[in-house]
């Protein structure tokens, strides 16, 4: 397993603290899938997700010097995202209830218990924490395949990552094996 990812993210954090806007852009790019995946799991609308994103980005920016490693970064972002989602839900509880009812009616989604939703956000956090331990190329492939909207288009993913379409499937399997090894090795318990 490569530790390069972790070094890169630690360096990014340091560069952000030194005022490098490109490092901040890159760092935001790393945490965005986690924030939005938690928002998606909690069935937030796009406006609410954007709202949570803004709040979490603010908190991250103001607390960058306390986040020293890639693992800590993902854990912090996940915790803050869940907290902000909770805040948002408390603020708009009534509106949320009716919106959920409409969503359920539209998409036929069975209502899930808060415990189940929490479990799902924890799962997203753990997977993201493991993913940032992967080499950059593997991370980008899994992100493109599992954290982007809709069914992944292998041709587009292959073109974006400069790889033959035929190797997307086998590479995906290799990446998932690496991810599994990280999950097994690190456990990611609190």
């Amino acid at each position: 397993m490569s530790r390069a990812g972790e070094k890169t993210h630690t360096e990014l954090i340091r560069a952000c603290l030194d005022g490098d806007p490109l490092a901040w852009e890159r760092l935001v790019d790393v945490v965005t899938p986690l924030i939005f995946s938690i928002c998606a799991t909690m069935r937030l609308s796009r406006e609410e997700s954007y709202d949570v994103f803004g709040q979490v980005s603010y908190l991250l920016l103001r607390n960058l010097d306390h986040v020293k490693s890639a693992d800590r970064l993902m854990s912090y972002v996940a915790t803050m995202t869940r907290r902000e989602v909770g805040e948002l839900r408390r603020r708009v509880q009534l509106a949320e209830r009716s919106r959920q009812a409409i969503k359920r009616a539209l998409y036929d989604i069975a209502p899930e218990s808060p415990e189940k939703l929490y479990e799902l956000t924890r799962l997203n956090e753990i997977i993201n924490r493991a993913m940032v331990q992967l080499p950059e190329r593997d991370y980008r492939l899994l992100r493109a395949l599992f954290f982007e909207e809709g069914k992944p288009d292998y041709e587009q993913v292959a073109a974006r990552l400069h790889m033959p379409v035929s190797s997307v499937g086998p590479t995906r399997l290799r990446c998932l094996k690496k991810l599994y090894r990280i999950l097994k090795q690190k456990r990611f318990e609190r």
Binding site: C16, P21, W24, E25, V28, D29, T32, F36, C39, A40, R43, L44, S45, R46, S49, Y50, F53, G54, S57, Y58, L61, E148, E149, G150
Partner: peptide, 18 residues
Amino acid sequence: PALYELRSAARELSARMF
């Protein structure tokens, strides 16, 4: 939900914040 389209809005907001 369709969150992919939020990416550029998120980038713009965070760049301004920074």
